[in-house]
């Protein structure tokens, strides 16, 4: 990764120098709402959170993305922010698929779209290879998250919500149990292959009086 401008914040630079994060980049806040972004291995999160806490950050949000349909890993998305000035730092952490994908395969791309996708995939793979060659490989997807509830107690509920909705577990969580769904639920509701509308038994049209 090149150290070109714009300048990273001290907090992110410190995380980068300590080899806790990779792909530490400055983002355009006016564009996507994030000031900075980086990727970290799940196991490094408690240390990252502790350092950010020292710097005056709080945990703003934690959520998860399920990208299994396209064969990618899942990811935890943490955002940290500050009260004294806006500084939204996004930390992404890859997580291995919690279950096998049982939904439909992604719709095959045709023509220009397929070409564009292939080019993007190739560029992505090359960038990852370049980072690995420079001694900064992307973190492998972890089997489970590492709880940061001992650093930010707000993470307690956020991690329970991610567990509830996605089935991702967090090592070291004080009491990981469901939070929003019924405690005897046997599903994780926000996984993309759960509750798809094309699988619904009845549609609104069926319920309409004929």
């Amino acid at each position: 990764m090149s150290d070109d401008s714009p300048q990273r914040s001290e907090s992110l630079q410190r995380l980068y120098d300590d080899k806790l994060v990779v792909q530490a980049e400055v983002r355009d806040h006016a564009q996507g709402g994030f000031h900075e972004s980086c990727i970290a291995a799940a196991a490094a999160l408690p240390e990252i959170a502790a350092k950010l806490r020292e710097d005056g950050f709080y945990l703003e949000m934690l959520t998860c993305l399920d990208r299994r349909q396209t064969g990618e890993e899942m990811a935890l998305i943490y955002t940290f922010n500050r009260f004294d000035r806006a500084h939204r730092l996004r930390v992404e952490s890859p997580i291995a698929a919690v279950a096998e994908w049982r939904g439909p395969a992604p719709a095959p791309l045709k023509g220009a779209a397929a070409k564009k996708k292939a080019e993007a995939d190739k560029a992505k793979a090359e960038a990852a290879a370049a980072r690995a060659a420079a001694g900064e490989p992307d973190p492998d997807p972890a089997a489970e998250g590492a709880s940061i509830a001992s650093v930010f107690r707000s993470a307690d509920w956020y991690e329970r919500e991610v567990y509830d909705m996605y089935g991702v577990t967090f090592a070291g969580h004080p009491d990981l149990k469901r939070i929003l769904l019924p405690e005897d639920a046997d599903f994780h509701a926000l996984l993309k292959d759960f509750g798809r509308i094309d699988e619904a038994e009845t549609t609104l049209d069926d319920q309409r009086p004929s």
Partner: peptide, 11 residues
């Protein structure tokens, strides 16, 4: 009743 979470092996 703590549901399925405890089965996940947490504390």
């Amino acid at each position: 009743k703590p549901g399925a979470a405890l089965a996940a092996g947490t504390s």
